[in-house]
Amino acid sequence: MTWDDAQTRNHVTRVEALIAALDALPHDAARARATETVEALVDLYGECLARIMDRLAGHPDAAALTEDLAGDELLDHLLLVHDLHPQPPEQRIRRALEEAGNGARLLSLESGTARIELPATGGCGSGTAAAATAVEAAVRRLAPEVDRVETVSVAAPAPTQPLIPVDALLSGLRTADGAPQQVGAG
């Protein structure tokens, strides 16, 4: 049975609700046993996934296969949950920034803090705030191990003026009406 992305998201939401409901169980022993059971299943499936990833590592197309696995939203998150993701956080952050599509770039990732450069949008700043929020959400989705996202807004550089404008160079070579003057004709 293969679910489409919508079915998968619905199932993830259902599982999250079921796990959250464990806290509402009236008996401490039942709550503890149910939580322990869920944790044991997650650990078991994590071990199975780790063995799959180990086997893939020896495959001649390992890089392409692991990238393909990481490209699937559900598998991507599962690999993250079990600390098995084939891409380092920096690569996933850059992918998140590309997906956000606002010209942001990763400046650094140190001690769990990602510093992101955002191009200034001009105006009152609400565009920059919205871009920062979108970037942070994208980074947290693909690199949840990042503790903090700092955005730095950078204004676009002003266009440079030529040292000598072309019009100044040609001013002596034009007639009074602006038409090019014939040079060397005589």
Rank of each mutant, 00 (worst) to 15 (best):
G178M: 02
L107D: 02
G103Y: 08
V139L: 07
A143F: 06
A24L: 12
G123T: 09
A34I: 00
A134E: 15
A158D: 10
R51W: 06
R148G: 03
H82L: 07
W3M: 14
T35P: 01
L75P: 04
E39K: 08
S108K: 05
E117D: 06
G112A: 05
P165T: 08
L22C: 07
H59F: 06
P162W: 03
T66H: 02
G123P: 09
I93Y: 03
T113Y: 00
S111Y: 06
A63N: 00
T121S: 07
A137K: 10
A29R: 13
N10C: 02
L163E: 11
L118I: 01
A21H: 02
H85E: 06
I52C: 11
T175E: 11
D54C: 11
P26M: 08
V81T: 09
G103A: 04
A32G: 08
A57C: 04
G122E: 06
A21F: 00
A34E: 00
T160S: 14
D177M: 11
T175W: 09
A114F: 11
H11E: 08
V81H: 10
T175K: 13
A120I: 03
S153V: 15
L56T: 08
P88Y: 05
D72P: 01
P144T: 02
E145D: 13
A185Q: 12
A100K: 00
Y45N: 14
N102D: 11
P162F: 03
P60Q: 04
G71F: 03
P26D: 02
E98A: 10
D167Y: 07
R141I: 10
M53V: 13
S171F: 05
A40E: 10
V38G: 01
T121G: 14
R31I: 13
Q7Y: 03
Q7R: 10
D177T: 04
G122P: 00
A34W: 01
S111W: 07
D83I: 04
